[in-house]
């Protein structure tokens, strides 16, 4: 909230109505996220560890895990995403009500990780828009918690009134893709060491 001008007494505070609404809405959204765990592989185990007693992400308002996409705010994709699962995550994402956020947990969800092969989607951002990428293979629970805190920060910067900062639904285009094919090809390019690892002997 911005403090507007000089005020005589500290008992009242002036602000824009819009800011007040945004503040109220966003902090309640951020501090009580309902995660939809889309746990597929190893990262899901670390996700469970984050939810269990030692790390306990309920401390950050994620008390209730939503196992139904209809009652979820944030989709946490924990683990690798093969092409066979791609339509599933898209459907789950489409079923979530607005506003919704996506955390991509782990190297596989973010880039395909060590699986640069025929079966694996090279980053879930070719399928659904992603807000926070948590690196690591798997990320430590602290890493995931940090990602969640980053998401809080991002949510608090959003606005209901400002078209730029508002979340809009991002449907698939008429070819059934989220990004243009060239972009998908480009971001799925092998990089680093995996460029050299296509020969089998």
């Amino acid at each position: 909230m911005k403090r507007v001008g000089e005020v005589k007494s500290s008992n009242y505070l002036l602000t824009k109505f819009q800011d007040l609404v945004d503040w109220a809405v966003n902090s309640s959204r951020a501090n009580s996220l309902w995660p939809m765990p889309f746990g597929t592989a190893c990262c899901a185990i670390e996700f469970m560890a984050t939810a269990a007693s030692r790390f306990d992400f309920a401390r950050f308002g994620m008390e209730r895990q939503a196992f139904s996409p209809r009652q979820a705010d944030v989709l946490i994709c924990a683990g690798r995403l093969p092409f066979k699962l791609a339509p599933v995550i898209r459907r789950i994402y489409d079923q979530m009500p607005q506003p919704k956020w996506v955390i991509s947990m782990g190297a596989c969800a973010s880039t395909g990780g060590v699986f640069d092969n025929y079966a694996m989607v090279q980053g879930i951002d070719t399928i659904v828009p992603v807000d926070v990428y948590v690196p690591g293979c798997p990320p430590r629970p602290e890493g995931l918690l940090y990602g969640i805190l980053l998401l809080h920060k991002k949510i608090k910067g959003e606005s209901l009134f400002d078209a730029v900062k508002r979340r809009e639904e991002q449907p698939l285009d008429d070819k059934g893709l989220r990004l243009p094919p060239e972009t998908i090809d480009e971001i799925s390019e092998p990089f680093g060491n995996s460029v050299h690892q296509f020969r089998s002997s």
């Binding site: 092409f83 339509p87 599933v88 640069d116 092969n117 893709l177 094919p181």
Partner: peptide, 19 residues
């Protein structure tokens, strides 16, 4: 190793599969 189709084509086919 990376399949026969381009990545974009793989994504497109995957997304167009009816689950």
């Amino acid at each position: 190793l990376r399949g026969r189709f381009s990545r974009a084509e793989q994504v497109r086919q995957a997304l167009n599969v009816n689950p």
